[in-house]
């Protein structure tokens, strides 16, 4: 990728992000009430989207080859257990990441 292509790529990220953050303010005037269906989606979507994003992060994991997704599975279990235990976002993320790094660097060395 050339430098110009890099700038265009970053620019698209900016424009896309600004668009999703600003669009509702342009579409739904604060003078009129928001449609009920949109209100429903606003409440129902977050869980579905976060579940989708977890799957997105794991999209390149293959159960049938390489390390069979074991480091990912173990580290996610660590994140979940530590988080239920301490409820400290930072600590849970740190513990899972360290666990994953140790596993892929020392146990499941390709």
């Amino acid at each position: 990728m050339t430098m110009v292509q890099q700038f265009i790529t970053i620019g698209i990220c900016v424009v896309g992000t600004v668009l999703t953050r600003c669009l509702p303010f342009f579409i739904f005037s604060s003078k009129k009430p928001t449609p009920v269906y949109i209100q429903y989606l606003g409440k129902a979507l977050p869980s579905a989207i976060f579940a989708m994003l977890v799957v997105y992060c794991l999209k390149n994991v293959s159960i049938f080859s390489g390390s069979h997704g074991i480091p990912e599975a173990v580290s996610i279990i660590v994140v979940v257990l530590v988080h239920i235990w301490k409820r400290q976002m930072l600590f849970s993320i740190g513990a899972g990441t360290v666990c994953y790094m140790l596993l892929v660097q020392f146990v499941f060395t390709a």
């Binding site: 976060f50 480091p71 994140v79 239920i84 899972g96 990441t97 790094m101």
Partner: peptide, 22 residues
């Protein structure tokens, strides 16, 4: 060795999802 550091992103989404789920 920073191999595996990018797992922080996965862990972040797992935590956000878990918070929502709980």
């Amino acid at each position: 060795d920073t191999n595996g550091l990018d797992f922080a992103m996965t862990a972040m989404f797992v935590v956000i999802f878990l918070e929502q789920f709980l």
